[in-house]
Every structure is written in structure tokens, then in C-alpha cells.
Amino acid sequence: MSHGGFFEVPSDLQNTWWGLVSWQLQLTLVPVLCGLVIALPIALLCRRFGWIYPPVLGVATVFYAVPSLALFVFLIDWFGESDLTVEIPLTLYTLVVLVPAIVDGMRSVSAETRAAAEAMGFGTLRRYVQVELPIAVPAVFAGLRVATVSSVSLVSVGMLIGNEGALGNLLSDALNYHRPLLAWDAVISIAVIGVLLDALLVLARRLLTPWARKATAK
């Protein structure tokens, strides 16, 4: 067994370092995107029927409180040791961040702007979609940043259910083969991916919300 370099992945993982990175990205981003798609209608319903918001938030929090490992083990019965088994819990976890981000963002629209929209003849749904949601975009992105960064690190837990943890799998190999460098590889790679994804989200938010710049452009 050769003691390879930083980017040399043990053969038992049957993957390259780049392969693990792209897998890591997939296991991170699929849940965040699915979470956003699921959170949007839930948030709209919470906005429309304010009374369901606290119970919805409660349920999301309970999901979040369930340890990921427990959920993984539970889901293996249905989906086996697959990507889906990792992605489903991570998707559920994003909801606890994304639903309140969207709802509170929509609620933050000033009373004047909301009254003006109503007075100009926006229907309720049109007001949500054309006025409140766009104005909530900065808050939604704040939620997406938290959801993304936490997903990036949670993915590695997947290593415990048959090497389903992408870069996290390097951690178990680091133990098995006494190669601490692999652990450093996993930790640093995951951190760098987290930072880069976060930077991309900040950039996307800036591009999407030219109206929210602080500095006055003259």
C-alpha cells in the first residue's frame, strides 16, 4: 500500500479526488435546491394562512432535531445505501432554515409598499409572487447560505452508511489506513467547497438584487 499524496484517493473508494468533489457538490446542492422548491409553496401557504406558520415551523424543527444518522438508518430500508438516503434528510434539514427565511422575508415588505400593491389592484397571489417574493430575495439568499454550508458538512456523515459521504469517506479511510493526511484532505476540501459555494451565493444575490445595493450609484 503506497502512502500517496494529498489528492491520492485510496483505491477502495473507487474514485478520484475530483470525482469525490463533484459527488460532494451533488449531495450538497440537490438537497438545497429540492429544499427551496419544497419550501416555496410551504412558505406561500404560511404567508397566506398565518396560523399554520408556527406548527409548520415546529414540524421542521422536529425534523432538524432528529440525528441524521437515525434518519439514514431508517431510510436505508427503502432506498438502500444510495445517494437518495443521504439527500432526503439533508433536504428536510434545509426546510428549517428556508421556510422562515422566505416567510419572514415576505413579511418584511414595508406596510406602505404592501398597501400600495393592494390599492393598485394586485390580487393576493400576484402580490406574493410579483412583489413580496422578489423583495424577500436577499432574505432567501441569507437562508440559502446557511442551508448550503450546513449541508456541505453534513454530507460527510454519509460515510457511516456504506461510504455514501463523498469527501467524508476519506475520513473513514484515514482511520482504517492510519493516513491522517486523508482526514486533512477531507476537512480542507469540504471547507474550501463551503467557502466557494458561499461566495457564489453572495455573487448571485448581488446580481439578482441590483436594487438592494447600499452604496448610492451616482
Partner: peptide, 11 residues
């Protein structure tokens, strides 16, 4: 309809 503080759409 015109309102105090204008109530413009910021976006």
C-alpha cells in the same frame, strides 16, 4: 392611489 412614504416597489 398615493401613500405616505410613496410605498414604491424597491425591486
Amino acid at each position: 392611489y398615493v401613500i405616505q412614504h410613496a410605498g414604491l416597489f424597491p425591486h
